[in-house]
Computed example of a mutant assay.
Amino acid sequence: MAELLIEGLTKRYGAINAVEDVSLHVADGEFVTLLGPSGCGKSTTLAAVAGLDRADQGRIAVGGTVYFDAARGIYLPPEARGCGLVFQSYALWPHMTVAENVGFPLTLRKVARAELRRRVEEVLALVEMERFAARYPHELSGGQQQRVALARTLVYQPAILLLDEPLSNLDAKLRDRARAWLGALRTRLKLTTIYVTHDQIEALSLSDRVVVMNGGRIAQIGPPQEIYEHPADPFVADFIGTTNFVPARLLADVAGGGRAQLELADGQRLEAHSERPARAGSRVTLAYRPEHMLPATAAMPEGSVLRTRITSRAYVGGLWQVGLDLAGSPLRLEARQPPMGDEFSLWLPHAGGILFPGAADVAA
């Protein structure tokens, strides 16, 4: 195992910076996920680490080996880097059995037959595929093929493991099972891993830390709970989970860690905790997760009660997703029972929201 160090990584395609000044330290044995929408630079960063794409600037080192250093003109080819790489496509040889597919990297490295057999058996047991050693890829399910592709990577004992959306070709239920299996495997392996995905559930459930990327840059780095509960900006809040955004005006100066007095577009007022200082009269955006909003009752804890209009109701199994309009802003509430009528009293806790300066620029 080894630590990974990325410093000032930049990759351009013509006038477009696919990755711009990305720096990241991954500790020995750490599982870090690069998360973001398509085109954010996560796969380009992974390709630069693997050596499949040569960056324009920056430095990449694993342990004591420098993979890439633009300033010094160092560039190791992929085969010299010792990285284990698993793509979306499993790329198994159709004419080879499972055991032959897994052992192929060792055959290329001219490993002795007895050692090859021992390592193939060992890694197939690790991914719980030893019973399928004599089968061919077309006789396996998608999840089983994914395990074989991972075993083929692990068999030559890579310095670091690079996974580029390895579960994306699986259906929803199989993907859930594969995610649980992969989570258990990562705990056993303790192999330094970079995992690329656009799936927030995968990122939150598997990672020691999550790196949220946007426009080729790192928007935020942190443990999954920190990323979810304390997003750095509206983009991160919107991309991780479901977030409701409400524009408002600040009525009085507020210091960081204080309670802000806010006015909505329709004149309704509310209070919210603010971690950042802000000036009276400034425009702000209040963000709430659906689980923090509740139907107002007579015995609610400290918070604000606001008038809203119901725009939709949808049963999603165990919960109702209720569309609301608050001062012209669309919200989504999750409720055990569907609210009746057209009007709705909504309770927002003083400490449950996140206040961002300015107007939130998020996808509709």
Rank of each mutant, 00 (worst) to 15 (best):
E7P: 03
E7H: 09
G8W: 08
T10N: 09
R12K: 11
N17Q: 11
E20C: 07
H25M: 14
D28L: 09
E30F: 03
F31M: 03
V32D: 00
L34D: 00
P37W: 08
T44N: 12
L46K: 00
A48Y: 09
G51P: 05
L52F: 11
R54M: 07
R54D: 14
A55Y: 04
A55W: 01
Q57G: 11
Q57N: 08
G58I: 01
R59N: 12
V62C: 11
F68R: 09
D69A: 04
A70N: 12
P78L: 05
E79L: 07
E79S: 10
G82H: 02
C83H: 02
L85A: 10
F87Q: 04
L92P: 00
H95P: 09
A99D: 06
L106F: 05
T107Q: 13
T107Y: 07
R109V: 02
A112M: 02
A114D: 15
E115F: 06
R118T: 08
V120Q: 02
L124M: 08
L126A: 04
E130W: 11
R131G: 15
P137H: 05
H138W: 09
E139Q: 14
S141K: 13
S141C: 08
G142D: 07
Q146D: 07
Q146P: 07
V148L: 13
V148T: 02
A149N: 01
L150P: 00
Y156C: 01
A159Y: 06
L162G: 01
L163M: 05
E165P: 00
S168W: 08
L170V: 04
D171W: 07
A172Y: 11
K173L: 11
L174S: 13
R175V: 05
R177E: 15
A178Y: 04
L182A: 03
G183L: 00
G183A: 03
G183M: 01
G183S: 05
L185K: 01
R186M: 10
T187K: 13
K190I: 10
Y195S: 01
H198C: 04
H198M: 06
Q200M: 11
S205C: 09
S205Q: 10
S205T: 10
D208Y: 02
V210L: 01
V210Q: 01
V211Q: 00
V212W: 03
V212P: 03
M213A: 12
G215A: 05
I218V: 15
I218Y: 08
Q220W: 12
Q225T: 06
Y228K: 00
Y228A: 04
E229G: 08
H230S: 13
H230P: 06
A232C: 11
T242L: 12
P247T: 02
R249L: 13
L250M: 12
L250W: 03
D253H: 06
V254K: 07
V254L: 14
V254F: 13
G256C: 12
G256V: 05
R269S: 14
R269C: 14
H273M: 14
R276M: 13
A278K: 02
R279V: 09
A280S: 15
A280G: 15
R283W: 10
V284L: 14
A287T: 03
Y288T: 01
T297P: 10
M300C: 13
P301S: 15
S304I: 02
V305A: 11
V305R: 07
I310F: 14
T311V: 12
A314N: 06
V316I: 11
V322K: 04
G328D: 13
S329L: 09
L331I: 03
P339Y: 08
E343W: 11
W347C: 10
A351R: 06
F356N: 01
A359K: 09
V362W: 10
V362I: 12
